[in-house]
Amino acid sequence: MIARTLSFSIAAAGIALSSFIAAPHAQAAELNVYSYRQAFLIDPLVKAFEKETGTKVNIVFSKKGLLQRLQSEGMNSPADVVLTADVSQIAQFEKENLLQPIKSAELEKNVPSQYRAPNGMWTGLTMRARAVYASKTRVKPGELTSYEDLAKPHMKGRVCTRSGKHPYNVTLTASIIAAKGEAAAEEWARGLKANLARKPQGNDRAQVKAIKEGECDVSLGNSYYFGKMITNEKKPEQKEWAASVNIIFPNQADRGTHVNVSTGAITKASKQPELAAKFLAFLSSNEAQTIYSSANFEYPLKAGIKMDPLVASWGKFKADDRNLADVVAAQTAATKLMDKVAFDQ
């Protein structure tokens, strides 16, 4: 009898819940998105798209597991679009054969080809740089101009960074492997670790905070964090942190600063690839690229977008133009390398 009660209560729960959550099975005029990127970044873009097209967009946000979810759901998956925070994530989807090619002339027009998959499986949407933040007072101009400088003896005890295993640092390391080989990258990682002022911890903002407070002099950080801090009204102290540092784009003299792109792709299971492509194209449009730039201080990929004045104020920089596929290929090696040099310990 309890068994019956149990199944009854499950059924009742199902009914109760489904009444307020409409099951978003791919219906016409609705688009379903799996997003690794956070809600507060994506929501303004989605609202703009909904407003423009009248298409309702449903989203599941998660920083992990969306690949496994798509995989388990198979061809019945309701998801049409996948948005990722970086290239290595989307590369896994491609490897697992979960995507279908994007057919959009507009996207091809908006996004330069080096930021799109050659086979058309995914497209970059925005770009960010892995920059170096340096104390305005304690780091002399020219003292640090490259990632390699961070590992040199003169930076001993002066460097802060987040975990070496964080994707941002892993892809940076992967880019160094791609550029100079594994041995050189390992030497760099060891040198960097030796120069650390404290055990890797916190996020990119926390490193700037540490510079402000004098714990260290330089840190690695994504470019947009500077904008987020300097405009933070909720925690005004962050403005001070940002004001205490200069943003440096390393390796301008050689291969350029390491960049990564956020991406979008269409799932293989999508039954409405045209709508999905329309959504991705929208994300590359003037309107969306402007939102990206002003809301999250990222670099638009579309040429000719009027950048947020703050982003523009950091100046132009030379980006590492090596194909991101090479960086993705070195990803696992980079992760292992970080373990090998015990970066986080």
Partner: peptide, 30 residues
């Protein structure tokens, strides 16, 4: 947290997922 995030339906937030998306980014006020 982890199961809610990975298993949830579209457009579905709980207090925990809401807290996490901001707090993990050290945005405690939000």
């Amino acid at each position: 947290l982890p199961m809610t995030v990975m298993l949830r339906p579209f457009n579905f937030e709980t207090l925990a997922t809401f807290v996490h998306q901001y707090a993990a980014d050290e945005m405690l006020p939000e």
